[in-house]
Nucleic acid binder design. Structure first.
Length: 500
RNA sequence: GGGCGCGUAGCUCAGUGGUAGAGCAUCUGCCUUUUAAGCAGAGGGUCGGUGGUUCGAGACCACCCGCGCUCACCA
């Protein structure tokens, strides 16, 4: 047997030999199709003692117990595991073929449902077909059930590096991983359904952008060959979606990947999923209620509850959520009015809070750091933090009555931000001033300050209706609702360094 | 990027200077309701990599690679 596999070991070599033997005996090891008419869950849920219902199912062999002329095996399909029972005297040649099958092989079976002596609902196989021969050994774990009915898993595949690099294997052998991703999908579907039901339309805007904006972040840079220009991978969708509101849409949203060229840790992946929504003629007050209603819809439709458990905290999403003022919250906690404090006072406060102030150069960042250290960790139950300092928010509209503030809110849950929203700045003259202030910050060394987007300003100059805008970090929302502590556990293929 | 930790068989892990181990998985034999099936036997290793110390290194030292946790930055 020839193979190109460099790392052929005994186990893999053995499987190639079996593959050959199957071919020689006339068993096609890679089938074209198999008609399935049931699944493991249906079989277990709908077993009736007095009926030998016939079923056809397909799945991956996960455990084999051979006893000479009869065998038991478990197969895993998209719903779970089911046991099958095979007898040589009933399936003849196919039993010989089964001897050449392994854990990991994908098979199609036909048979009737029965219960074993020990009470496990199983399929008594009348026909067995190999659908795909597996050539690599799975990191298979064994399962048992203890006296109290708890599942015990032996030698579970736990190596995080391998699990992330070979997610396909992780998904096969760690069923709860699949669960989390099914929830992720359902959460996004629920969001989309809710937005569609309000008649907001889902749109697509450029990922490759000549200028980047809509957030404070460092971009990835790429190059277009025939135009011979550098382009940025978007860090946010905001500025393009607002152009569409200028264009006259009555509410647009986009669920998409954004890219930020920054550090990676358990809450940051270089590419991540954002949902942004813009609704004309509304303000941030309206948007707060919208966020409450949308979150309620997602929680109830996906999880049938508003109560969640996350990192040791019981979270209750019942509305209305608490609202606190950004500036007042800091003042109440520390006695310092960040709006009127001098730079030295802010630095002193930051130092007292244990903030590393060498990294936070500007006043805006200093204030942000202070909030992060003093207030954020206490925001366990859903809380709207409202009315941010203007200098933190170059795209938000000035507060209608409070000097130095903008109409902006972030919702916090379990000490983490889950969304960011504001009454959008629709005054093109003010927007230009804000951009110019950003340029000053950039010139002063703030790499994450905005660039001036002249086309965006031109769009505003045509007339941008008053608009409420919202951004939701989908990965973090999924983490919260599925009780995952690492973003890598809610992204199928998290960014990794190349394999050595 | 800094700090701490980890990397030994397909998987989970022992092994702190003297012949590379265990359980599961794999292979051979027996076994027609088993279920971590069982019984008897067998094979399987570039101990992440490269240098060094030593009579002798999986272990000690240096550097490198990868991963995890954490701090910094951010969402």
């Amino acid at each position: 047997m020839e193979t190109n596999l460099k790392d052929v070991n005994e186990l893999i070599k053995r499987r190639y030999e079996e593959l050959n033997e199957l071919n020689e005996k006339g068993f096609q090891p890679y089938a074209y199709s198999f008609d399935v008419d049931s699944d493991s869950e249906d079989i277990k849920d709908n077993y009736k003692e007095d009926e030998k219902r016939n079923v056809k199912i397909a799945g991956r062999i996960m455990a084999i117990r051979r006893m000479g002329k009869a065998s038991f095996a478990h197969i895993l399909d998209h719903k779970g595991r089911i046991q099958m029972y095979l007898r040589k005297d009933e399936i003849g040649d196919q039993y010989a073929a089964f001897k050449l099958m392994d854990i990991g092989d994908i098979v199609g079976i036909e048979g009737y449902i029965f219960k074993t002596k020990t009470g496990e609902t199983s399929v008594h196989v009348t026909s067995l077909e190999l659908l795909s021969k597996s050539l690599r050994p799975l990191p298979i774990a064994k399962e048992a059930t203890d006296e109290d009915g708890n599942k015990i898993i032996y030698d579970q595949f736990t190596d995080k590096e391998l699990r992330y690099r070979q997610r396909y294997v992780d998904l096969i052998v760690n069923p709860e991983v699949k669960n989390t991703f099914v929830y992720r999908s359902k959460i996004i579907t629920a969001l989309r359904n809710y937005l569609d039901a309000q008649d907001y339309i889902e749109v697509e805007t450029p990922i490759l952008q000549p200028l980047y904006g809509g957030a404070a972040a460092k971009p990835f840079i790429t190059h277009h060959n025939s135009l011979n220009i550098d382009l940025y991978l978007r860090i946010a969708d905001e500025l393009y979606l607002k152009r569409l509101i200028v264009g006259g849409f009555n509410g647009v949203y986009e669920i998409s990947k954004d890219f930020r060229n920054e550090g990676m840790d358990r809450t940051h992946n270089p590419e991540f999923t954002m949902m942004e929504l813009y609704v004309p003629y509304k303000d941030y007050e309206w948007m707060m209620e919208f966020v409450e209603k949308m979150t309620t819809h997602v929680c109830k439709s996906v999880f049938q509850t508003l109560e969640f458990y996350y990192e040791g905290n019981q979270i209750d999403f019942k509305t209305p959520w608490k609202r606190i003022s950004f500036v007042e919250a800091i003042k109440d906690k520390t006695g310092v009015d960040v709006l009127n404090a001098t730079d030295d006072e802010l630095k002193g406060l930051a130092k007292n809070l244990g903030v590393d102030i060498s990294a936070a150069e500007g006043k805006a960042k200093l204030i942000d750091e202070i909030f992060g250290a003093a207030i954020e960790p206490e925001l366990i139950q859903p809380t709207f933090v409202i009315d941010y300092p203007l200098i933190l928010s170059p795209l938000a509209k000035k507060h209608r009555s409070k000097e130095g503030l903008v109409e902006r809110f972030e919702a916090y849950v379990a000490g983490r931000e889950i969304c960011n929203a504001f009454s959008e700045l629709n005054d093109p003259i003010d927007q230009r001033i804000r951009f110019e202030d950003q340029v000053k910050l950039r010139d002063a060394g703030d790499e994450e300050a905005h660039q001036v987007d002249e086309d965006f300003l031109r769009a505003l100059e045509y007339g941008f209706p008053p608009t409420a805008g919202l951004g939701v970090g989908i990965d973090r929302l999924v983490m919260l609702l599925t009780n995952q502590t690492s973003i890598r556990d809610v992204i199928f293929f998290p960014q990794m360094k190349p394999e050595a």
